[in-house]
């Protein structure tokens, strides 16, 4: 197997390397790729959509359909991880609770355990106390990460970034919270059902916008329909349409990243996890 693999790799690699000489030079402004389609995009984006960031414009408008499915890919991954890993809740014989003021761990048998309480915290047998420094710094940073993420989403038109990047950062903020404290705390704030709902809702915003266009009589995902709704001209309508779908992307990406993390880090048990 090893030799076979090496031979395959060397053969393919050699072949591919050899034929790189036919490629246009790196950075060649006259290659077919730079001459055929992209000039149209670069020269007309601002006219068509009022979005200076050409990438965003292509992503969410010219090839918005691709992006819808890109978002769906993410959703699919979330669902897949859930389907593969999630273990339904099972009856547990005993539960551990930490009395937070004193740090004493109590073990409760059966269904005698403290109901919702601020001083008692449910923990697992492999619970470790969180680190003070990490916990504090992360709590401090999470706001900024989140506001930064929202900024990225909102300014996708003018600077790099957009729904996907913002969504990942948002998701990362929750992941950070889960890492710095523990997974239970994170799940308490952003539950699994919420994650599932959000991840579906994001794609729904995207595809629903498209479907709305279709119902009003335009083509699917043709944002022109927004112009009577928002009272703007068609170009600005496209700009706003792009913004709406970016929000959808961000919501999905955030929720799915968190959802995948929940499942991966606890191997589907959604207990304390990593």
């Amino acid at each position: 197997m090893k030799t076979l693999g090496q031979i395959t790799v060397l053969f393919c690699g050699g072949l591919l390397l050899f034929f790189t000489s036919d490629f246009p030079d790196f950075g060649d402004a006259n290659s077919p790729a730079s001459l055929h389609l992209s000039p149209y995009f670069i020269e007309n984006t601002l006219k068509d959509t009022a979005v200076p960031n050409v990438v965003t414009a292509i992503l969410a408008d010219y090839r918005g359909y691709d992006t819808m499915f890109e978002t769906t890919v993410i959703l699919t991954a979330g669902l897949a991880c859930f389907l593969l890993l999630r273990i339904p809740k099972r009856e547990v014989k005993s539960r551990y609770y930490l009395h937070e003021p004193t740090g004493v761990t109590l073990r409760f048998e059966g269904d005698k355990y403290p109901q919702k309480s601020d001083v008692f915290k449910r923990i697992d047998s492999n619970w470790v106390p969180y680190d003070l420094i990490i916990n504090f710094t992360c709590r401090l940073l999470i706001h900024f990460i989140q506001i930064f993420a929202l900024y990225v989403v909102a300014h996708g038109h003018y600077s790099p970034g957009g729904g996907f990047q913002g969504g990942v950062v948002l998701g990362a903020s929750v992941i950070l919270f889960a890492i710095s404290g523990n997974l239970r705390a994170a799940i308490k704030r952003f539950g699994e059902k919420t994650a599932a709902l959000f991840s579906a809702a994001g794609v729904f915003i995207y595809a629903g916008t498209g479907a709305l266009c279709m119902m009003i009589g335009e083509h699917f995902l043709n944002y022109n329909f927004l112009s009577p709704l928002l009272g703007t001209d068609r170009i600005m309508a496209r700009s706003h349409g792009i913004f709406i779908v970016e929000i959808g992307v961000a919501v999905t990406v955030m929720a799915v990243m968190i959802w995948i993390y929940y499942n991966l880090s606890s191997a589907g048990k959604q207990d304390e996890g990593l």
Binding site: L75, A196, L197, A200, A201, V203, A207, G210
Partner: peptide, 26 residues
């Protein structure tokens, strides 16, 4: 009414329904 949009409907319907299914499954 939707006839011109059928090529989109044929794929959008399962897509939207999958979202609804995922959500309602909760």
């Amino acid at each position: 009414t939707f006839l011109p949009d059928l090529p989109a409907i044929i794929i959008i319907t399962p897509l939207l329904a999958s979202l609804l299914a995922a959500a309602s499954g909760l």
